[in-house]
Design a protein around this nucleic acid. Sequence first.
DNA 1: GAATCATGAGTTCAGAGAAC
DNA 2: GTTCTCTGAACTCATGATTC
Length: 264
Amino acid sequence: MTNFDRFLASWSGVDGGNPFADVWICGIEHGGSLEPATNLDPELEPASWTDDFKKQHPKFQTWQYNQKAAKLLVALNSLQRDLGQQPSLEGWKAYMAEKLYVRDGESFKLNLFPLASPKVDSAEWNLVYAQHPALRDKGAYRERCRQVRFPFFDDQRHRYKPKIIVGTGKTFRDDFAKAFGFHGPGERRPIGAGQRQRECFVYEDHGATLVVTPFFGGRYGLNGDDHLIALARLIAEYRLASLCRSTFGRPFRTIPGVAASHAG
DNA sequence: GAATCATGAGTTCAGAGAAC
DNA sequence: GTTCTCTGAACTCATGATTC
């Protein structure tokens, strides 16, 4: 295994948090520009959003993706307290400021690919990484991630046993499934209604649930609170069904407010 | 008027299908 | 078989609408 493979098969490019958390959120890759200081050394321990991290990134609360992640987690907490109620997003800002991706928190954030990939093949990228043959071609870089990084993620999933994994970006749904050891085509589940309807894909494996959603934000993504609440309800339904299967040997049907149609 | 939230614009990339 | 065009998606940032 090369040093680059060790970099891929590590916690590199992971926002982190608490790996023992029930909920893992997995993005595709970092956004934004390439940081010249980025190194390719493996990260043996997952990071987290520490006070130092927040001081270094004073605008972290403006990151829309993580705002929506915080809202989703708040809605899930709300449903956990009372499954029949309308989930509340109240307090999501405080949650984001104090609890999101922290070491002893309720969430853990990963990325399928460790580097800010939009810059792969760019002049800026070549200036920094030209000496790495595996990084000169984006397709080869991603394929190497599938071969080396995904088995690492699969191992970590079986080690830490998260109950819910949310993959954001449905064009990469096969990659999310492969990365965490889920099989099959997934079950199509609509959330929202009318023009605002979005489609998620749900995979289940040994008490764990993978939900692949459209991206958090943007024109075609989960861009409203109603989407996040519907997603929280969808997740809660599958968690309850899984719990009932393990307890009673049969699934529980839908909970109020969750679309019951199974299109897949 | 300020804060918050939802949506759109611009950029980049990938994949599918048509045209050559 | 190759090239071109179109469409959808991911991402950041900006802007308009709404609420207080």
